[in-house]
Every structure is written in C-alpha cells, then in structure tokens.
C-alpha cells in the first residue's frame, strides 16, 4: 500500500482570521489552520484539518 500525503493549506496562507497581541494569539476563526489530504492510487482517501489554539479537528 502506498499513500501520498500532501499539505494542501499552510497556516500562513489559510483564509481565516487571527488576532495577535505580542506573540500570543488570542483569537482565530474557524477556517484558520493547516489542511492535509491523503491519496491512494490517485484517489482522495481523506482530509485532516488542524486548528491551533483549540483542540485539533478532523474534517
């Protein structure tokens, strides 16, 4: 079995909104995060979305 995993959204380029005071993030919208997709034989197998500053979430 061969699985390809790609990061499809980086945190810096994600479309959500974050608010930072100094180095501390105090607010982030639901769409701010990192996304990954997995493929087996070029067919999408699944997606994972990590959100910082909250529990991390699979979507």
């Amino acid at each position: 079995m061969i699985i390809k995993v790609k990061q499809t959204q980086s945190y810096a380029n994600s479309v959500g909104v974050s608010v930072n005071i100094g180095k501390k993030t105090i607010y982030e919208s639901d769409n701010k995060g990192i996304a990954y997709e997995a493929f087996i034989n070029d067919t999408q197998y699944g997606k994972i979305f990590f959100k910082p500053a909250k529990n991390y979430l699979y979507m």
Binding site: M1, I2, I3, K4, V5, K6, Q7, S10, A12, N13
Partner: peptide, 13 residues
C-alpha cells in the same frame, strides 16, 4: 519547505 510538505507512505497492506 516553509509552505508545502509532501510524504509517501509505504506500508504493508
């Protein structure tokens, strides 16, 4: 890299 990462997983079935 700073904006992209890709992996190949080779696994027993």
């Amino acid at each position: 890299t700073t904006q992209k990462s890709e992996y190949s997983i080779y696994a027993i079935n």
